[in-house]
C-alpha cells in the first residue's frame, strides 16, 4: 500500500508568535461578538416567551427595565446592538475574504479599523433613531 504523503504538512503556528495588529483584534472580536450575539438571542427568546405568556409575565420584564438595574439592561441592549452590527460588518468582510479578495496586510488592517468605527457609528445612529425606547 502506498504511503500517504503526509511528511510535508505544516504545523500550525502557536498564537504567541503573532504581534498584535488590527486584523488580529478584529478576528478575535468577531468570535467574541458571535458568542455575545448567542447570549443576546437567548435573552430575546426569554423576552418573547414572557410577551407570549401575558401581561403578568411581561410585567416582570417591565419592572426590571424600570427598576434600579434598568440602566444595566439599557447598556446590555446597546452592547448587543454594537455586537450585532460589528459581527455583521466583519461578517461581510469574511464573505469577501471567502471570494479571495482583501488579503493585503495594510488594507486589511485599515479595513479592520474602519469596521470597528463603522460598528460604533451605526450603533449610535440606531439608538439615536430609536430615541428613548427603553
Amino acid at each position: 500500500m502506498a504511503k500517504p504523503s503526509t511528511a510535508n504538512r505544516p504545523l500550525s503556528p502557536h498564537v504567541s508568535v503573532w504581534r498584535w495588529h488590527a486584523t488580529m483584534a478584529s478576528s478575535i472580536a468577531h468570535r467574541i461578538s458571535g458568542v455575545a450575539n448567542y447570549t443576546g438571542a437567548v435573552l430575546v427568546t426569554i423576552w418573547l416567551a414572557a410577551l407570549a405568556a401575558g401581561p403578568e409575565a411581561y410585567g416582570a420584564v417591565e419592572a426590571l427595565i424600570a427598576g434600579p438595574v434598568g440602566i444595566l439592561v439599557t447598556l446590555a441592549l446597546i452592547g448587543f446592538t454594537l455586537s450585532l452590527t460589528y459581527h455583521m460588518l466583519n461578517g461581510i468582510r469574511h464573505l469577501v475574504w471567502d471570494l479571495g479578495h482583501g488579503f493585503d496586510p495594510k488594507g486589511s488592517n485599515l479595513r479592520s479599523i474602519l469596521i470597528f468605527a463603522g460598528a460604533v457609528v451605526i450603533t449610535a445612529a440606531i439608538w439615536l433613531a430609536a430615541g428613548g425606547l427603553v
Binding site: 410577551l51 401581561p55 411581561y58 410585567g59 427595565i65 433613531a129 430609536a130 425606547l133 427603553v134
Partner: peptide
C-alpha cells in the same frame, strides 16, 4: 428600533 416604547 422604530417602536415608540416597549410596553406590553
Amino acid at each position: 428600533a422604530r417602536l415608540p416604547d416597549m410596553s406590553y
